[in-house]
Amino acid sequence: APLSPTSALPPYFMKGSIIQLADGELKRVEDLRTEDFLQSAEVSGELKIDSSTVERIDTSRTPDAVIIQFSVGEHKAQVCVEVLVEYPFFVFGQGWSSCCPDRTTQLLALSCAKLSVGDVCISLTLKSLR
């Protein structure tokens, strides 16, 4: 199948993109570590890191897309998202991962691991949310 255009993915996932952490430090997207997100959430004061565990990964009717079911946060809310197979998620302790790492690397030059059921991804929530 023809590759979806990179424009379908946010520009900040492109290797070499400059990311500003909450303390002002600048890092390249490919150099980010789990600690960078944890510390930035601490500094931000408004945001909290949630652990979102991949429960299921199903094919979608949308071409080149999958439906990922997550168990989110301490309440284990069940959330489903439909994303392109190359969309990268940040897995705790592992780094960028997607359902189709080769495609992610081909489109974004971002090295990627394979996202699998059981992986725990970083997601955000507002501290003000109950």
Binding site: I19, S44, V72, F89, S123, L124, S128, L129, R130
Partner: peptide, 25 residues
Amino acid sequence: NVEPRSVPVFPWHSLVPFLETSQSN
């Protein structure tokens, strides 16, 4: 002569999703 060019800088929180479904206070 290298023309200076602006490099976009993205905030860290744009990289990870908001997945929580709870209602706000």
